[in-house]
Amino acid sequence: MTVGSQVKGCYSSIKSIEASLGVLSNKTQNIDSKQALEHTEQLIKEIKNDLQKQVVLLSKQEPQYK
């Protein structure tokens, strides 16, 4: 497993976390939980953007594994 595919795996996990948080924050009836979930979703989104850049960077560095 190359570094690129490992980071890609982590990136997709982060995406799934973001989606689950979105589902939960929509389902919950509680304003406090909703706020906490939305705040966390925002953090995860920032991480996701960073990782996406890293995935692109790594795919440029490891063109032979594409």
Binding site: V3, Q6, V7, L21, H39
Partner: peptide, 29 residues
């Protein structure tokens, strides 16, 4: 783990920053 294994200082910093961010997210949630 990525932060430890990479030798690129920029990537290292990025991984560490995001790891900390995720840690705080876990703490709140």
């Amino acid at each position: 783990l990525f932060a430890l294994s990479t030798e690129n200082p920029e990537s290292k910093e990025m991984y560490q920053r995001n790891s900390k961010k995720l840690q705080s997210a876990i703490a709140t949630i």
